[in-house]
């Protein structure tokens, strides 16, 4: 292997700084959430304690953190499942050109680029004018989908752009019905990418703020709750909450990555060895 050029080390240092920039602040509040009971929002640490985490679990004066967490979790799962199913169907639809597919594609892109506050305002106004009360599981759910579905669809485009149609042709040649082809050939092949879509769907929903602002009704989701806290909480309890939800996000991401890794390993173990001995 040729030796690394000097530019490698310069770029590696740049990359390192970028990663530090990405994670530095998060790590900082992670440390500060263990601030002693008399400590403040910045360094120095006044001792080390779990005080601020205890505060979180106490009966709240600041709001309904656990209720909002449970709503965000349920909403995230709803958005995740819907995003996966609808994106896969959309991705399959777009594999063949159908009348109006171009217009539908631009509509999906519009979902990505239209400012989030417009979606929030528009859905809020629509519901109120139609006399339907806004609720996180109806209007909030729909408002979030306008952002997660186009994202999922783009991932599906990327997947199907790389998909080898020979597998389907082979299945068809052996007499598989279209549904059988999708069920036993296409879906298993794209399964790892679906995990990616699911991860996007869940996390984008779980962290969404703007689109739920005017569409969630009287009960807050977690990001709304946290945002409310930023204006009236001046203790490290907000860091403790930030640390906990970040840890939760990391656990979720870890679970997804682990599943993807296991799937890949199982696949390579069970996969055919055809052609392996040839080269």
């Amino acid at each position: 292997m040729e030796p690394r050029p000097r530019s490698f080390y310069i770029l590696a240092a740049f990359f390192g700084l970028y990663v530090l920039f990405l994670y530095g602040p998060t790590i900082t509040i992670g440390i500060l959430s263990f601030q002693g009971p008399s400590g403040g929002l910045t360094f120095p640490m006044n001792g080390v304690s779990l005080n601020w985490f205890h505060e979180l679990f106490k009966q709240q004066a600041v709001g309904d953190i656990w209720g909002s967490f449970s709503r965000s979790l349920r909403l995230g799962l709803m958005v995740m499942v819907t995003t996966v199913v609808v994106s896969v169907m959309g991705g399959l639809a777009f594999r063949k050109r159908f009348a109006g597919s171009g217009a539908l594609f631009y509509l999906a892109i519009a979902g990505l680029v239209i400012p989030s506050i417009l979606v929030s305002l528009g859905v809020g106004l629509f519901f109120s004018q139609a006399g339907i009360p806004v609720h996180w599981a109806t209007s909030g759910f729909g408002a979030q989908l306008t952002w997660t579905l186009p994202f999922g669809l783009l991932v599906m485009f990327a997947v199907f752009n790389r998909f080898n149609p020979a597998y389907e042709e082979a299945a068809r040649d052996q007499g598989a019905s279209p549904w059988q082809t999708v069920r036993h050939v296409v879906l298993p092949i794209i399964l790892p990418s679906l995990l990616g879509v699911a991860l996007f769907g869940f996390t984008l929903s779980y962290d969404e703020f703007a689109r739920t602002l005017l569409t969630s009704g009287s009960k807050n989701t977690l990001p709304l709750e946290i945002y409310g806290m930023t204006t009236n909480v001046t203790t490290p309890v907000i860091f403790a909450l930030g640390t906990l939800t970040t840890v939760f996000s990391f656990v979720i991401i870890g679970l997804f990555l682990l599943t993807a890794w296991v799937l890949n390993r199982r696949r390579s173990r069970h996969g055919s060895d055809a052609g392996k001995g040839m080269v």
């Binding site: 990405l22 509040i29 996390t203 962290d207 946290i226 930023t230 860091f239 930030g242």
Partner: peptide, 12 residues
């Protein structure tokens, strides 16, 4: 980090 909360990242 993209999969974690933007608001928390701002607070950070």
């Amino acid at each position: 980090p993209f999969w974690t909360s933007n608001i928390i990242r701002m607070i950070s």
